[in-house]
Design a protein around this nucleic acid. Structure first.
Lengths: 166, 166
DNA sequence: TTTGTTGCAAAACGTTTGCAGCCTC
DNA sequence: GAGGCTGCAAACGTTTTGCAACAAA
């Protein structure tokens, strides 16, 4: 898609995708796209369902169905960060070139951006694999939890050959 | 398994962890650790359960309970690659310094290793976040599926385990 | 003895599916 | 008019939980 990330461009892109794949252009699908693209940050199916219920009659099944479709046409990105709700975020109009920090203690998710990492990953090529996108999750302990856990810290010996100094 | 010394260290580390956290050293926990550390590659709770059932009386609940414990003490790594079974792999004695290629068509998972990527990620430091480990997943289309898609075979929503080279 | 852990079964959870009717093409 | 899509509810598959019995501390 072009670099114009206005909502009209998104809408048009979706229309083109639906038409080319012989999927029907239903009002539900457009309503879902609209809500998704006016939502800042990460959301899940339930959040979206409850948000939409306020002013639109839509079922959870249709939400899931449409989210799949939006993932398929790369308008949104799906993250499975645990066995709770899958998380989604829009792919355009958002700063989507980010990675995720996940606190293994409290489960909080934060985003960060890092060019060297991005370059290293994107310059990787495979003979028998065509990369479309990637997800990088860094797990650890956030500042808040670090303070709270200070009492019970145990020493963890490293069995790995490479030592990692963060 | 030819790594007697290694396994002794693992066993000892686990014992220390259990003791320091005031968790009981039950035969089930050691049996699970043993099976996990003699399993090559990725596995899930169900695979482990069925494997252990053959020569050990253990319940799925205890499997899950113990896997959590092993994740907690960093003896195994957990991957949530979709909303199917969570996948685990041992953290030591294995080449765990790898990333994952995931085919978005057939769901096949393949490992690869890349030093520049590893270095870029590991050299990253945060003020309010202490990284313990990370997961990098590259999504795309594997060679096999690329060929099949070319011939018009559409979507194969299957999760396979056989390792073809990417 | 105390109480953390177990096996078992049932419940919980997010997601998918079956179906009758609706609506896009 | 055909059949893809919808809402609804029931079913699904994975994981967690409640509980009585057990066993490690």
């Amino acid at each position: 898609m072009g670099e114009e990330n206005s909502y009209e461009a998104i809408h048009e892109y979706f229309t083109k995708y639906l038409r080319e794949h012989k999927h029907r252009r239903t009002p539900e699908r457009y309503a879902i796209l609209e809500h998704v693209y006016s939502y800042e940050g990460h959301f899940n199916a339930d959040i979206l369902y409850n948000l939409m219920k306020q002013d639109y009659r839509v079922s959870l099944a249709t939400i899931y169905n449409s989210l799949d479709l939006l993932v398929e046409c790369k308008l949104i990105i799906k993250h499975q960060l645990g066995n709770q709700y899958a998380q989604y975020e829009r792919a355009f109009g958002n700063n989507n070139l980010h990675h995720h920090l996940i606190c293994t203690n409290c489960g909080k998710v934060k985003e960060f951006s890092d060019k060297p990492i991005r370059v290293a990953i994107q310059s990787k090529a495979f003979v028998h694999f065509k990369m479309s996108h990637y997800s990088l999750y860094l797990y650890g302990i956030c500042g808040k939890c670090k303070d709270e856990l200070k009492k019970g810290i145990i020493h963890i010996p490293r069995f790995t050959e490479d030592s990692d100094d963060f």
